[in-house]
Amino acid sequence: MTTLQAALSGALVGGMFAVMAAGLSLTWGMLRVINLAHFGLILVGAYLTFELATSWGIDPILTIVLTVPLMFLVGAGLQWAFDRLGVEEFASLLVSFGLLIIVMQTVSNVWSADFQRMDGDVNPYATESVSIGRFVFPAPTLIAFVFAVVIVVAADQVLRRTFAGRALRAFAEDRTVASAFGIDHRRLGMVLAGLSAASAAVAGMLFALGNAVTPSTPFEWIGMVFAVVILGGIGQVGGVLLAGVLVGTLSAVVSATWSPALSPLVLFSAIILALLFRPYGLLTPAARGAR
């Protein structure tokens, strides 16, 4: 019973990691930008949600109405700059690391280095939960999971069904050919980066819903989120959700049946094993990837 409950809440927590990872995975897979600044955008998203909810009294979930468009512009602008300056994959890792520490310090200057957490009166969700039978679904992570499913399904459909989506996938596979077919990759790239940043705004809101934030919080995410991105298969949003749920569930089950102290040990060992057997992501059989 405890194990099942833990597995359930763990899967929901995995949903939050999936939202954090989705944008990173897409820009990495499609634009070949390893954007560490994505973590900075999530952080800013969390702080904006905190600020808007606390000082303006907006419902924390509704804050994304403001933060999502704002972040879209920031993300698109960053991609414009990356493209304009010709920043390649590895360079993008370093440049965005520079941006990440700039964001962290700026956040610290604006909101202080202390913990910021929405009080119970502005954030009714933190201590709420939904009970079905004997199972309990904690509200913050349940909301995160719903957003994860919506974002992943939407992204997946857009990539499969729309012209822009197919153009992006073509571009990810072969840049020169795609350009030859008249795909305006710059514009598409900016849109994709904008959407990815918008998902960071959502991720930030989701994190703030259940947690206290400090400027150095992003360092707590990097390990787990990268694991989810690579396990899911870079550029594969569906894989990101699957990986998030597996990672969250495994970690929670170990924590409940064995000890929380062992959960990082088991989790990261499992990640290594998964990589050895499925090096191209959980959804891609090794043989297919190799060809």
Partner: peptide, 10 residues
């Protein structure tokens, strides 16, 4: 529990 625990439900 480890200092970087994220999932407190279990």
């Amino acid at each position: 529990y480890p200092p970087d625990t994220t999932d407190w439900a279990p």
